[in-house]
């Protein structure tokens, strides 16, 4: 690289102070012009970072507020987790006080309650995933077979609707339907007159959550599959029909492979986050004390330990950090696994 600049140097040119050698070997003069290795002078200015920032400073002002937002409201709380390793008393600074220790972690690991909510979390998360992941695929395949577009659009519009409701509204609707005089119990009592009201049955806690999740997510979840389905070439279906393939074979050999990529990506995205169950919904669901035993999960437990009185911020933060680290590990390992197994990953 050094010999590149020789034409100019060999010609005995004294280079002004502040001249820099660039990556491609040419020389950049302080005036902003640059000297190519063949001795010609570049007309375009090759700007330094600072010059680029100064020249388009307005673009960089766009960064100020959002970066401040991310630092203050996202990154500072990440650092705030340090209290999980220390003590925090009211009146302490943001990062608590005392020496670093793992005592809060040791404490919750010894709690029976922690393992109860951990197990609840696993069961609720796994079943939610197992049910809520495939249903949109099935619904999308069924919708895809409908050629009468008005009917198709009607079904789509209706089935997307629950996605837009507040969890408060959803849980309030469940309560209204689940009371002893509600519609659900009217139906159940028709078959079994002695049945307990849904809201008074502790075993109903998880099914209530799962069914409400199905209700809210299935329709909305079809969007990406329906989009992928429209990209499948019609000629494939015609060719298979000539080959004598029936509807099932077409679905199996053309339709499903056609949306395979979408399925894999969404599978990877969702299984990595299966532990992150609907915190806000469960927090409302366990307001019904009957449901507390089976529907209490890690995140709602953090709320109880950390914020309901009497509260321990440090212990709550420790449990919360534990969950966040497990969540991150899951996402990363699922991603690595999918890259190795199916050759497609999210990043």
């Amino acid at each position: 690289m050094a010999q590149v600049a020789t034409p100019a140097l060999a010609a005995g040119v004294t280079l002004p102070k502040g001249t820099k050698t660039l990556k491609d070997g040419s020389l950049r003069l302080p005036s902003g012009y640059w000297l190519r290795d063949d001795g010609t002078i570049g007309h375009a200015r090759l700007k330094t970072r600072r010059e680029r920032i100064v020249e388009d400073w307005q673009l960089y002002t766009f960064l100020i507020l959002p970066v401040a937002f991310f630092l203050i409201f996202k990154y500072v709380p990440m650092l705030g987790n340090i209290i999980a390793f220390r003590e925090y008393r009211l009146g302490d600074g943001y990062f608590g006080h005392g020496a670093l220790s793992l005592k809060w972690f040791e404490r919750f690991i010894q709690q029976d309650m922690f393992w109860t909510v951990f197990t609840n979390n696993l069961i609720i998360g796994l079943v939610s995933f197992a049910v809520c992941f495939p249903l949109p695929i099935v619904l999308a395949l069924l919708l895809n077979e409908i050629k009468w577009s008005k009917f198709k659009r009607f079904v789509q519009t209706v089935s997307y609707m629950p996605h837009f409701l507040s969890v408060v509204v959803v849980v309030a609707i469940i309560w209204e339907m689940g009371t002893s005089t509600g519609i659900i119990n009217t139906v159940i009592r028709f078959f079994n007159p002695d049945a307990v009201a849904v809201m008074s049955d502790p075993n109903a806690a998880r099914p209530v959550y799962w069914i409400s999740e199905i209700w809210q997510t299935t329709g909305w979840g079809t969007i990406l599959y329906l989009a992928a389905l429209t990209t499948i070439d019609d000629q494939l279906y015609e060719a298979s029909r000539i080959d004598g393939a029936g509807r099932w074979r077409q679905t199996w050999h053309i339709t499903l492979p056609g949306i395979r990529h979408t399925i894999v990506v969404l599978f990877t995205l969702n299984i990595g986050t299966f532990l992150a169950v609907g915190f806000e919904k469960l927090l409302l669901i366990i307001q019904n004390g009957t449901y507390l035993a089976q529907a209490n999960v890690i995140s709602t437990y953090v709320y109880q330990v950390g914020l309901a009185s009497p509260s321990s911020y440090a212990l709550g933060a420790a449990i919360g950090l534990f969950e966040a680290v497990i969540g991150l590990t899951l996402v990363l390992s699922v991603n690595a696994l999918s890259r190795r197994l199916v050759g497609s990953s999210l990043w």
Binding site: V67, M78, G80, V302, G306
Partner: peptide, 22 residues
């Protein structure tokens, strides 16, 4: 860098308690 600053927060969050104290 600025993209990553935002994207990282999708995968790891400070959590309920540190947010509350903040």
């Amino acid at each position: 860098f600025f993209t990553g600053l935002a994207v990282f927060t999708m995968f790891f969050a400070g959590g309920l308690i540190p947010n509350y104290i903040l």
